[in-house]
């Protein structure tokens, strides 16, 4: 990897590179996910306890992993934006947030769909569910902050501070929720599978997880491109408005 960090700071160069990269990356993601879906739905055995319901897991678990990965990317990008003022970093953080929120939402919904037949209820205040729900709130707060502060530069810096504070807080929240839950119901009945997972199930799971991750990269690049274009349009409009206003004065 070429490590001149600021060589990629130029948005024009990023646009050129990303235009070439998006399609192949998206294609790899598509192939991986198609293969993963095939293996998950037809190529793997039903669980001896959960039956076919276990197939939800192949979507659910990668989505949950991605929800954390997206937040990490967002926090790292925010730190880069705050410390180095890297011009692409806040674009990256902003673009990662809705994707992460979607994955979190997907994890919650699929978990709920799995919980109904397995636990007999859509929702339990299990430690894991609760902390994912709070993670979802963190994403929503981040998006809300971006949406309310109009000026992009201000919004970017405020959102970066929020993302970093959230990043510090995620483990604390998770730990506190785990502790809270074990306090209330010491014997947790709800545990997915055993400590080991059969290879026939592990393979589709890992393929799906890789596919989701590659898809995240493709979506992130697409969203970053869109964001850069949006900012260009904004500055062009502002320049136009300023020109028109100046013209009238003169």
């Amino acid at each position: 990897m070429a490590l001149n960090f600021h060589a990629y700071a130029n948005p024009a160069r990023f646009m050129m590179l990303s235009r070439r990269l998006v399609a192949p990356i998206a294609m790899i993601a598509g192939v991986l996910i198609a293969l993963g879906v095939y293996l998950a739905l037809w190529g793997s055995p039903p669980d001896y306890q959960q039956g076919d319901t276990v197939r939800i897991m192949y979507i659910h678990v990668p989505a949950a992993w991605l929800s954390l990965l997206c937040y990490t990317v967002m926090a790292l990008a925010s730190a880069t934006a705050l410390v180095f003022r890297h011009p692409l970093a806040d674009v990256c953080a902003k673009s990662a947030a809705p994707i992460g929120a979607s994955f979190t939402f997907l994890a919650l919904v699929t978990g709920s769909l799995w919980g109904k037949p397995m636990w007999g209820t859509w929702w339990v205040w299990d430690a894991r569910l609760t902390s994912v729900l709070i993670l979802f709130f963190l994403y929503l707060g981040y998006l809300a902050l971006w949406a309310t502060i109009e000026e992009p530069v201000r919004a970017a810096r405020a959102a970066a501070v929020l993302a970093l504070v959230g990043f510090v807080n995620v483990p604390i929240i998770h730990y506190s929720v785990v502790w809270w839950n074990t306090l209330h119901q010491p014997a947790s009945v709800f545990r997915i599978g055993g400590p080991t997972i059969a290879p026939s199930m592990l393979a589709p799971l890992l393929i799906m997880a890789t596919g989701f991750t590659v898809m995240f990269v493709a979506l992130l690049l697409l969203r970053m491109r869109a964001e850069i274009l949006r900012r260009r349009v904004r500055s062009l409009r502002l320049a136009q408005a300023g020109f028109a206003g100046g013209g009238r004065e003169a």
Partner: peptide, 8 residues
């Protein structure tokens, strides 16, 4: 924004 941080 603050509510999630209050949870612990």
């Amino acid at each position: 924004l603050v509510m999630p941080f209050y949870i612990p």
